[in-house]
């Protein structure tokens, strides 16, 4: 059975930690990191990468366009 696996890459230094992406993720993959970037923002990251489907919902709502999304089909 084919399954979709996804991943995101966050431009950490451009992330302002607004957290708008967090509730947009249907798989609860994204969270704000306990670390901060150079500007002191708790940046978004994949807390639960296994569950990412690459749906790009987070990227849709990201006001700073810091999220790049990848997706691939995996045969199981």
């Amino acid at each position: 059975m084919a399954k979709v696996k996804g991943s995101i890459v966050v431009n950490i230094e451009r992330c302002k930690g607004c957290g708008v992406c967090v509730p947009s993720c249907p798989q609860s993959v994204i969270a704000l990191h306990e670390d901060v970037n150079a500007k002191g923002y708790h940046y978004a990251y994949m807390a639960n990468p296994e569950e990412c489907t690459g749906c790009a919902n987070c990227a849709m709502v990201c006001p700073d366009a810091v999220i790049t999304v990848y997706r691939m089909k995996v045969n199981e």
């Binding site: 696996k5 996804g6 991943s7 890459v9 451009r14 302002k16 930690g17 607004c18 957290g19 708008v20 923002y41 690459g54 790009a56 990227a59 849709m60 709502v61 990201c62 006001p63 700073d64 366009a65 810091v66 999220i67 790049t68 999304v69 990848y70 997706r71 691939m72």
Partner: peptide, 30 residues
């Protein structure tokens, strides 16, 4: 997964690569 052939969304190159002047979470960026 993070390979060029799997790319499904990236920031449009027409968006100039500099930090936006808007507050965190502001809808202007979108």
């Amino acid at each position: 997964i993070v390979k060029e052939e799997n790319l499904v969304f990236r920031k449009t190159p027409l968006f100039i690569d500099k930090p936006l002047s808007y507050c965190p979470g502001c809808g202007h960026g979108v």
